[in-house]
């Protein structure tokens, strides 16, 4: 308890504030925790079945992910005020042919779960 009190006191003193952000020998810098988790399911609008192989892109970054056999995708990405996302069927008719769709998500906390439906071509 006393040790923690002293620690907090030292934390407040600028002469040692940097020592709380450290790296180990041959380790990495600290993760600055600047990310958001987005997870979703892509389904066919007509049947409600999950669609595999849809490329889901965050259009304001280079990040993308493909949906799995449950239609699920997920990624961590930078914190932003909104997330424009593009859904594209890139495997032709392999898992059915679907039209491209985009949407914009507005984050309310650090995790987003959502479902989206695509129309058949």
């Amino acid at each position: 308890m006393i040790s923690n009190w002293i620690r907090n006191l030292l934390r407040g003193l600028s002469v040692t504030s940097m020592v709380f952000v450290f790296q180990a020998c041959y380790g990495t810098p600290q993760d600055m925790k600047y990310d958001m988790y987005i997870e979703g399911v892509v389904k066919a609008r007509a049947t409600g079945d999950p669609i595999q192989g849809i490329r889901v892109s965050l259009t304001e970054t280079d990040q993308y992910e493909f949906t799995d056999d449950r239609g699920v995708f997920s990624f961590y990405t930078d914190i932003a005020t909104s997330y424009p996302i593009l859904f594209e069927d890139e495997d032709g008719g392999q898992n059915g042919a679907f039209m491209t769709r985009d949407t914009v998500l507005d984050p309310e906390n650090y995790t987003i779960f959502f479902e989206i439906a695509l129309d058949r071509e």
């Binding site: 600290q30 600055m32 925790k33 990310d35 988790y37 280079d62 990040q63 990624f75 990405t77």
Partner: peptide, 17 residues
């Protein structure tokens, strides 16, 4: 490479050396 970079970011990597 580009593909690995994308996959690691998707997986929540926060720092790199």
């Amino acid at each position: 490479d580009q593909e690995k970079h994308n996959a690691l970011l998707n997986a929540g990597m926060g720092a790199l050396t």
